[in-house]
Write a protein that binds this DNA or RNA. Structure first.
Lengths: 210, 210
DNA sequence: GCAAAATTTGACCGTTTGGACAAACGTTAA
DNA sequence: TTAACGTTTGTCCAAACGGTCAAATTTTGC
């Protein structure tokens, strides 16, 4: 593993690598790995192709760097779920945080979605270990809450999946969402509307109480 | 539009075109449009590349044919929602049908997801018209149900989105779902578990009644 | 100011890819 | 039988692509 040796980088190297990663995120999230070319990334980064390849050994190198940075920040909201907190508040906050990420980091969401769609060839090992362990841990917490009667009995894994799915949908399927909502309802308020709906759904469901 | 002229095809042409489309669905849904090669499709279809190009003018021609066939069958379950039926039963059935599609037609789901992720360059026109009109119509039905007090007041558009998101998640993010569930819980029963959870979620939410 | 190191670029290379084409092969019906 | 038509394949091509390299230029440390 070469990622374990700390590379010494100049100031320019640090800056240019950031510029490249930003450009690559833009391109990869739009066209996928195979659909993106080094030339596109180089142009988006405002430099020539050989120059870009001076900072990253290969196209895959860029992609791997993006992905390995991504996963940790991507699952951070789940990590924040507090076993000591109020269950309903914790779930609600988690949904809010995930929805904010869909709104503020749609490119990251799409990069991740692209990777999973293709069978997660590059990050499956991390899903099997890091992600699974975290979800296992939080599932235990949720199950405890259910046993205490704070939440209805349900499968905590599928609960987590449903929160991922509903929130990330607004980043990954944004084009479809805007097409269906139309110009009026499809404005910037859609994330707020969605968050409100999801809160209502997850807390109380659709059937009136009484 | 040349798709409006009815092409006369021989028996062999009809058969071979089906074989090619089946092979292309397999390849496209796994690697995306840009990530798939005509050679891969040809090999999966058991024929040479020039032979395949005898039946379809281009790679894009195959992809377009797949997509235009797909959208109609993909939204068929939504069309089946019956304004005269019992609201809770209708919603529940819709979730079931969508979940069955995620289980039985994951390749179609991924093909669709890939297209939307890339900005829907080929089917955006259909989303703006056909899909939007259908959703508008069903949203009206749902809103009527809400006004009648059969369902709680909520945004019907985001309700539909959340059903799409949660069900298709099990096809599009299958790799992640299986990684997180692990070998034990990740067996074929996961679709049944998911359907049960979603039914519970959409009907009653997570907070105990009383 | 200057030498060493870091950065940038134009030119180039091998491979992959989508697609064209003509020739060969098979089928059908008079 | 044979001519017309449908099908299949080997060969080829131009463009796109990932990546290399040596030379030119700029920056850095003394």
């Amino acid at each position: 593993m070469e990622s374990s040796v700390k590379p010494r980088r100049t100031r320019i190297q640090r800056e240019k690598r950031e510029i490249i990663l930003e450009a690559a995120l833009e391109v990869f999230s739009m066209h996928g790995f195979r659909g993106s070319t080094i030339d596109q990334i180089a142009e988006a980064a405002g430099m020539s192709k050989p120059n870009l390849l001076y900072y990253f050994r290969s196209k895959e190198d860029i992609h791997n760097t993006l992905l390995s940075r991504l996963l940790e920040t991507w699952i951070a909201p789940l990590r924040e779920i507090d076993a000591e907190g109020d269950p309903v508040t914790e779930i609600r906050s988690y949904i809010r945080r995930k929805m904010e990420m869909a709104r503020d980091f749609p490119r990251e969401s799409r990069l991740f979605a692209n990777e999973i769609l293709q069978g997660a060839p590059r990050i499956l090992p991390m899903l099997d270990t890091d992600l699974k362990n975290l979800v296992d841990e939080k599932a235990k917490v949720i199950r405890l809450w259910m046993r205490q009667g704070k939440l209805v009995n349900a499968d905590p894994y599928h609960l987590i999946f449903s929160i991922w799915a509903t929130t990330q949908h607004y980043a990954d399927f944004d084009v479809q969402v805007r097409a269906v909502l139309g110009p009026d309802r499809g404005g910037e308020g859609r994330f707020e509307d969605a968050a409100r709906f999801l809160e209502q759904l997850f807390i109380g469901g659709l059937v009136p109480r009484g």
